Amino acid sequence: MKRIGAGLTTLVMLAACGQKSELEPRTGASLPPAPYGAAVRPDAEALLDLPTLADPERSVELRRRSEEREDDPFDLPPE
């Protein structure tokens, strides 16, 4: 049982000590080609940025207290 615990501890420690460096494609591979109409090819960091539509900001105000729900005309019972 101690060997399993020691092995698990070692795996957790190895997972926690990852190297942080600039992202680069694997050897022999290259980044995707430039998008149609673009003059330059984006680098790895630019490719990781999410467009606004993929990560929208919250635009709904949260309710702070209990309120009665309005009647929903589309909330119909199953047929």
Rank of each mutant, 00 (worst) to 15 (best):
M1S: 13
R3T: 10
I4C: 09
G5K: 15
G5Q: 15
G7Q: 03
G7P: 02
G7Y: 07
T9E: 07
T10D: 10
T10K: 11
T10N: 08
T10L: 15
L11A: 15
L11G: 13
V12I: 15
M13L: 15
A15P: 00
A15W: 10
G18H: 09
Q19Y: 10
Q19H: 11
K20G: 06
S21A: 08
E22P: 01
E22D: 10
L23K: 08
L23D: 05
E24K: 14
P25N: 11
R26F: 14
T27H: 03
G28Q: 04
G28F: 02
G28N: 05
A29G: 00
A29M: 08
A29V: 03
A29P: 00
S30H: 09
P32A: 03
A34H: 03
A34R: 03
P35G: 01
Y36G: 02
G37S: 07
G37T: 05
A38K: 06
A39D: 14
A39I: 01
V40Y: 10
V40I: 12
R41W: 04
P42T: 04
D43P: 03
L47N: 03
L47W: 03
L48D: 04
L48A: 02
L48I: 02
D49R: 14
D49E: 13
L50Q: 07
T52I: 12
L53W: 06
L53D: 13
L53F: 07
A54R: 02
A54S: 07
A54I: 00
A54H: 01
D55K: 14
D55Y: 11
P56M: 05
E57L: 14
E57P: 13
E57A: 14
S59H: 06
V60M: 04
V60N: 05
V60W: 05
V60A: 08
V60E: 04
L62S: 07
L62R: 09
L62D: 09
R63W: 09
R63T: 10
R63Q: 14
R65W: 08
S66M: 04
E67H: 10
E67M: 12
E70Y: 00
E70T: 02
E70K: 06
E70A: 05
D71K: 14
D71H: 14
D72F: 01
D72K: 02
P73A: 08
P73L: 09
P73V: 08
D75A: 14
L76R: 03
P78T: 09
P78L: 11
P78G: 07
E79I: 08
E79F: 12
